[in-house]
Each structure stands twice: as C-alpha cells, then as structure tokens.
Design a protein around this nucleic acid. Structure first.
Lengths: 261, 261
DNA sequence: CTCCACTGGGTACGTTGTACGCGGTTGTGG
DNA sequence: CCACAACCGCGTACAACGTACCCAGTGGAG
C-alpha cells in the first residue's frame, strides 16, 4: 500500500510532518544493528534484538524502517560511510586509490558480516553515492567513464575477493564458537584421513608444506594491490598525476620506491 | 551427542550397517535441493519443500543430513563436481586454466544462489578435493606450492568477483519478481531525482553516458581473464608448456621439484 | 480548544529449523 | 528360526523469526 508508493528506502522520508516526536531514529537503529552484527553476526541482529538494544519494543522499529531487508540496506550504506574518501581526488591517483583500497579492506575486517549481504542491484544510498563521486572522480579526468567503471570494478573486485576469504574464515570460526587452534584440532582427524589415503597428493602438499596461509595477509594484499594499480597505470595517459611513473607490462621483482605520504 | 562425534559432514557415514533400507539418499536430497534453489532461490529450499519435492516427510531428511547448514555444504560440493577438470593437467596450462575459469563461471551462472553461500573455512568435500588436485596439478610442476596457492586464489578471485556481480543482479531481480526493464522503470524516479539534484556529476555521467553495463559480459570476462593468465605467465619458467608454441615435446609430468611422502 | 496524523508497543499469525518419540522393518546373534 | 536392537519414515511440537494488526496516548495545525 503506502509501502509500495516508494521506489526504495532512500525515497521514503524518515520523519512525517505531524504527530508526536519520535523517540528514536533510523540512524540510531542502524547503529545498534551494526553493533550487534559486528559482535554476534548478522543473524543475531533480529528485529527484537535490535529493539531491545535501544530499549524499544520490537514493533516500534517498523515506524522507522519498512522491513528488515531495508534495514540491512541502511546498514550496508552506513558502512560505506566509514571509508574515508575526503579530499579526493587529491591529484595523486595512486595514493587516492591506495587509500580507498585500504579503507575498504579495513571496513570489511571491522564488519565481516558484510560478506553475507549480496550487493545485488545497486542500491545507491547516500554514502555509496558519495563514495562513487569521490572514487571515480580520481580517474575521471584521465579516462572515459567506461574505462573508469572498468578500473573501479577491477579494484573493488580485487579488494573484496581478497578480503572475503579471510573474513568468511573469521565468521565461520565465530559461528562455530571455536578458536582457530581448536578448529584445527577438531578437523585434524579428517585431514589426517585424507592425507593417509594417498589419493590427494596436492592437498597433502598444501597441508604439510605450504607456508602461505601463515604469511601476513597484509603483505599479500599490498602485493596484489600493487599489481592492480600497475595495470591501471599502463592504461593512463602520461598526464595523469601520480607519485610513480607509469610502467609497461611485465614488470616484476622487488618493490620499487613506495609512494610516500 | 552422536552428532558431535563426527568432525564434519564428510566423515559421517551415509548408511549404517543394520536396519531397513533407506528410501532416499543424500545424493537424491541434494539434487532436489539444488533444483529448487536454482528455480526459486536458496531461501525457497526449506526442509519441508525439499522433502515434498522427493515425496518424503519433512523430518525424514534428518535421517540423511544432520542439519540444513550441512545440506547446503553438500549442495555446494555437488556444484564443484559440475566443473569439468578431467584430463588436467593436459600439458597446456593456459588451456587448462581457461577451461577451469569458464567452467567455474558457467557453474555460477547456472546456480546463482552460490553467491549467498559463504565459502567459510574450507569444507573440503570430495568434489572440491578432486577439483583442487586437478586444478593445482596444472601448475604444480612449475612453481612452489605457495606460489600455486597464490595463483589459484587470484584466478578464483577474479572469476568469482566478476561473476558475482551479474549473478547477484539476476538474483535480486528474481526476488523482486520484476523484469529488468520493469525494475529500471520503477527506479527511474529516484535516479532522476539524483541526476536533477546536480550533486552527483559522476553518477549522472554513468547514467547518461556509460555504455559499459550494456557490453557483453562474456567479452569483459575474457578480456580480464587474459590479463590474469598473462600475469601468471610472467612468473612461470619458460619450460612451462603453453599454447604459445606447438611444443608437443616440452611437457613435464607430475614430477616437480623435490617432493616426497 | 478540537481534531487526527502520528507515536510506542502488545498481541498474534504464519513460517522456519529441528527435538522427540511413535510404530513398523530388517540384519544379526543366539 | 527367532528375538532383539538398530534402523526406517514421519507426525507432532516448540522456540524463534519477520511482521500484520490494533490499541491507547500525544502534540502540531486549524
């Protein structure tokens, strides 16, 4: 009815014109929901639980939010606002994109449950819109809007792909209620059986030899990010301001001079 | 109790020694669940719905599967089995990895709900294990196990990141019950308002100028995949057999550098 | 002042996953 | 060959979920 009148949650006004003053707010509800999801997972952020968190009755939330799905949209957009993109573009595109990538990764690590929220059709909340403006503004002067979209998709894809793995591990551990050593100990019989069967030589190799899972995630992330930025650099005109010169493909080896500041 | 005895679903035997013959099977249940999830989304695959699909009572499923979460693990592993990795490694690593990437992408497109199943801690079902063996066997002879893990993570990350976008769009559309033009028409007032506000120049540019969303997903995928494979190529020794020259001879078998067990 | 669009929230309903226990079936030890 | 215990399918039941509906109050507009 009146619900279907609105195209989406962003077009629905939070406060009507008349009537008594609301005791809560969308922002407050969203904040509480994010807090619960951070601590106990998204599935713990039930309407009743959120209401209890702010001292309201369960059904009161529906005065502010049409449905739980819409609330999750609000939560997701709130997270977008955590990524610091002020003063972008700064003139140094590489520094800007690095700062964005770091911010996106850090946000995911603070809110692992974001992995379970499918991005779906673009929701275009206010924070996400601002993010788009600032982020795509970085390369807007140098490339076409289509190329820009491609680069941003690649960058987002890289960051999210990388961080999704560690985030979902952490979530699974939290859900199981076990610590990582406990989990390892628990699955040891299974892993052992697989190894002893002799049917999985590469799996065995991973278990017995690989050191990668123990390497710093941070290092892996920076290493891969460098490649993504290098790739972008090859498609940018030389007029693009950056702390590093654009290099041709195939370049590898030790990391060059890191862009300072 | 007896549930907690087992490390995971893969160690729990499907059939006990004694008693009457089961009327159904894990495979049959998993199949039905996948069929429902494909057609109506994962959330439609409830225990009752799955049971009805195979003509069983709801609680009968619990004779075969300890919980719905475990059933979803079975479903996910069944999907891994759809990816054709027979005859890998073939000697042409580039062809092998391309075939794998195509297969992975096609599988995602057939089963969009996989995007909502977090990979979590590696579950190591039989199909996934076989996939690991075949896929990582492709580069095993040329690089260390750590490098191999890195490449596979990158390849998986690229494919999943690319396909996740289109898949989640399709899922969202299906959930909303609208066709894509219908959805576009519906959100037009909101987009229009954003454009008219003048506050979002880049968003406006995307809406009015960008052609990328209309380009072939297939082309985009192949283009990006080429870059991923090119990057892998730069880190491989020249002895690695690929399609570049027609060196039928240069193939090395499973014998890599030192490894023994 | 009166009015009524609004407020917070209690109650209730349909749906979910699943614990429990039932009567029937069947491989196996005596 | 038979009794028994282990298994079967599954009906009933329950807690927790999202949320529809309804209510008694409240406060700005006329």
């Amino acid at each position: 009815m009146t619900d279907a009148e609105y195209v989406n949650i962003w077009m629905r006004p939070e406060r009507p014109a008349r009537g008594p003053k609301p005791a809560y707010s969308r922002a407050q509800i969203t904040e509480a929901a994010v807090r619960i999801a951070d601590a106990e997972g998204l599935e713990a952020a039930t309407m009743r639980r959120i209401a209890a968190e702010i001292g309201a009755g369960a059904m009161s939330l529906y005065r502010y939010v049409p449905s739980r799905d819409n609330l999750i949209e609000l939560m997701a957009d709130r997270l977008m606002g955590e990524i610091d993109v002020t003063d972008m573009p700064s003139g140094d595109w590489r520094a800007d994109l690095t700062r964005y990538a770091d911010g996106l990764r850090a946000m995911w690590l603070r809110h692992p449950w974001i992995a379970t929220v499918q991005r779906s059709l673009p929701s275009f909340g206010p924070n996400q819109l601002l993010l788009i403006e600032r982020l795509m503004g970085v390369l807007d002067a140098f490339v076409s809007i289509d190329e820009n979209l491609g680069f941003v998709a690649m960058l987002n894809g890289y960051v999210e792909g990388t961080v999704r793995e560690e985030v979902s591990s952490a979530e699974e551990l939290r859900r199981s209620g076990l610590s990582e050593p406990e989990w390892m100990a628990r699955s040891h019989p299974y892993v052992d059986q697989l190894v002893k069967s002799g049917k999985y030589p590469i799996f065995t190799k991973i278990v017995t030899e690989a050191r990668r899972p123990h390497l710093s995630r941070e290092d892996q992330f920076r290493h891969g990010l460098k490649h993504v930025l290098d790739y972008i650099a090859t498609a940018l005109p030389p007029t693009a301001g950056s702390a590093m010169p654009a290099s041709r493909e195939g370049r590898e080896g030790q990391d060059g001079p890191a862009q300072g500041s």
